[in-house]
């Protein structure tokens, strides 16, 4: 008991070598500031700057965009903008060309995200299991390089790499197949050529997400699995995936949204051509707004694009939460 009292006595005093407790305490606020600190409005006060920023740079432009989508407004026309109701949206609905572009964008999105995920997860697992590999850190740094390059640089590089006259790709194509290919000018090759570049560029991101997901798996469980001599497939299914799936899904979600709005890479590599063979929704939007200057049409397309992106996000989050809640429900029922 005496020992306990001694310990309690020491709680309020500073350990040896440190200044007294009163000097470590936060400085006392003066009257007005103290009142503000205690006020329930204080969190709002702290959030105000970012809320203003968000309002000015996000909410107002978004509302402006929404409003503009109901007008026929051309930047190059001398006529005043005209309210047309849902006509712009009806035009989108009735445009077979735009549906074609949308379909192409979805194909692009599914293919690039799918391939990057498969490759990323595979390479991520290999790196995860090769901690003793010499030069691992350097290899990882090199591997992440494509991801940090700006798309404008990647697009330009690959235009040159794919060039039919002096491109490296055609040098090897000539040596292997005995002929060259017009990768970006051929109607059948241009789309796969762009997809390949996007996969090259974003696979490292999925490797990164995979490594992050694997890092979140508790070591104790992995060691237990090793002791139990669980095969790799079961370790992945029962230990790695349940712990890492949220991070992995987050990576897939981010990539899906990003792939859906791909513009710059396609613009630089093919400008949407040949014909419209590589045109994505993002590029169509850019061209409608900033090449044809049809601001009303571009705004309505932007609204539709936004809704699609929101829908994707919602579906992913729903799937993730649904499985989570089902797992919790099962755990609860078991208990």
């Amino acid at each position: 008991m005496a020992q306990l009292e001694t310990q309690l006595d020491g709680v309020g005093s500073a350990p040896a070598g440190l200044p007294p407790a009163e000097t470590l305490a936060p400085p006392r606020l003066r009257g007005g500031l103290r009142a503000l600190d205690d006020s329930r409005f204080f969190p709002i006060f702290l959030l105000t700057p970012i809320l203003i920023f968000f309002l000015v740079w996000n909410v107002i432009p978004l509302l402006w965009l929404l409003g503009l989508s109901f007008y026929r407004y051309k930047l190059t026309s001398s006529r005043a903008e005209k309210y047309v109701g849902f006509e712009n949206f009806r035009d989108i609905y009735e445009s077979s060309a735009l549906w074609g572009t949308l379909g192409r964008t979805l194909t692009f999105m599914v293919t690039t995200v799918g391939l990057a995920t498969v490759l990323g997860v595979g390479l991520g697992l290999l790196f995860w299991g090769s901690t003793r590999m010499p030069g691992r850190r350097l290899a990882l740094t090199m591997l992440f390089t494509p991801m940090v390059l700006p798309p404008i640089a990647v697009g330009t590089f690959y235009r040159l790499i794919y060039d039919p006259t002096f491109g490296v790709a055609n040098y090897y194509a000539d040596r292997i197949f005995g002929r060259t290919f017009d990768f970006l000018g051929d109607k059948d090759l241009a789309f796969p050529a762009v997809i390949a570049v996007d996969v090259w560029m974003w696979t490292p991101f999925m490797i990164l997400m995979t490594l992050a997901a694997l890092g979140s798996v508790p070591k104790a469980e992995l060691e237990a699995a090793e002791v139990d001599r669980l095969p790799w497939s079961k370790r992945l299914r029962y230990i790695v995936l349940p712990h890492g799936k949220f991070i992995l899904m987050l990576g897939i979600l981010l990539r899906t949204i990003d792939a859906f709005k791909t513009t710059d890479l396609v613009y630089l590599m093919t400008n949407g051509g040949p014909g419209k063979q590589t045109e994505t929704v993002g590029l169509n939007l850019y061209r409608t707004g900033f090449e044809a200057f049809q601001m009303g049409d571009a705004s309505s397309l932007a609204v539709v694009t936004l809704l699609i992106a929101v829908a994707f996000t919602s579906i992913y989050l729903y799937v993730l939460n649904f499985r989570e809640s089902r797992a919790q429900a099962q755990t609860g029922a078991g208990a």
């Binding site: 000018g185 051929d186 109607k187 949407g272 051509g273 040949p274 014909g275 419209k276 063979q277």
Partner: peptide, 12 residues
């Protein structure tokens, strides 16, 4: 441009 490009590249 889309139409002409589509023709010379055999898209149509």
């Amino acid at each position: 441009q889309e139409a002409f490009s589509a023709y010379v590249t055999d898209v149509v």
